[in-house]
């Protein structure tokens, strides 16, 4: 045989039946070649893009000015430690708001699905709540509630602090978004599951609790995590009504040093939290896809 690929039938047979040198099946060998090829292509293109950025951005006329005011190493090392503590406030707001949002969001989603006529006002309220809340920018809600509600009280106490009402506004806004996520999950549970549960004599609320919600929650974990990642960043919006969290502290440092590097330092802190959260979300999504749809199609 002279050609590089066997053409005759016994040549093909020999290739198919004889174990290859590497001891891998034909399929595995092919996959391995493909994987090596994709890795190579990915590395080369990444190197090219990064090299282009490194080469060309410094060639821009204003690069020296921008580097001095955004990427000043001394300012960076100076501001980073000062941002830890305010950033801890971001984390605390996040950790308190997130569970509240999940609970309120689920209650609103359940209320929207209620079909009993006696509870119609509840359903109406839930519908109006999601529509109105989602119709106004988060930053505007924070301003309105954060400045407005504390004005109702004459005394000063923990519950008149802007940070409390900023957090409240975040919970309110995100609950409305999360409620829609839960509602989609609840509606995604097939009617036949409800029929099976009711036919066994379970009441509609028992059906909701034991059959529908557990399946719905499993399905919405990835989109829910997405909302949590954006909540983690939106906590910074609370800064506009006063609390000194990372963004605001960075702003103060910027105005003291006449250098924008503290903002970059703050961005690094946010990334430290949001990147692991995003990776976790992707991981959960991939797992859900594997669970529900078998083999992935490339």
């Amino acid at each position: 045989m002279t050609g590089s690929t066997p053409i005759t039938s016994d040549g093909a047979d020999a290739r198919a039946s004889a174990p290859s040198r590497s001891g891998l099946s034909r399929r595995a060998e092919y996959d391995l070649r493909q994987r090596r090829r994709s890795t190579l292509v990915a590395s080369v293109s990444t190197v090219l893009v990064v090299a282009a950025i490194i080469l060309f951005v410094p060639m821009m006329p204003g690069w020296d000015r921008v580097r001095a005011s955004f990427f000043d190493w001394d300012t960076f090392t100076d501001s980073l430690p000062k941002l830890w503590k305010p950033f801890w406030l971001n984390i605390r707001i996040f950790l308190i708001c997130a569970p509240c949002i999940v609970v309120v969001g689920m209650l609103v989603a359940i209320a929207r699905g209620v079909r009993s006529p006696a509870l119609f006002p509840l359903r109406l309220f839930a519908t109006v709540f999601t529509d109105v809340v989602r119709g106004v920018p988060v930053i505007l809600w924070i301003t309105l509630i954060g400045f407005g509600v504390p004005g109702l009280f004459s005394e000063r106490a923990w519950y008149t602090k802007p940070v409390v009402w900023g957090g409240f506004a975040l919970v309110m806004c995100y609950s409305a978004y999360v409620a829609e996520v839960f509602r989609a999950g609840i509606e995604g549970v097939h009617e036949s599951q409800r029929a099976a549960s009711r036919s066994l004599g379970l009441s509609s609320s028992q059906t909701m609790r034991t059959v529908v919600l557990p399946q719905a929650v499993r399905r919405v974990v990835p989109p829910l995590m997405n909302d949590m990642v954006s909540l983690q960043k939106d906590v910074a919006l609370v800064s506009i009504i006063g609390p000194v969290e990372a963004l605001r502290r960075a702003g103060i440092l910027v105005s003291q040093s006449f250098n924008f590097t503290p903002y970059v330092a703050a961005a690094v802190l946010f990334l430290l939290v949001s990147i692991p959260l995003t990776r976790l979300t992707d991981h959960l999504m991939a797992r859900e896809r594997r669970r529900t749809s078998g083999t992935a199609v490339s």
Binding site: S192, A196, S199, L200
Partner: peptide
């Protein structure tokens, strides 16, 4: 008791 065509197990 009722049994369905598509099983409907949880």
């Amino acid at each position: 008791g009722m049994v369905f065509q598509s099983y409907n197990l949880f």
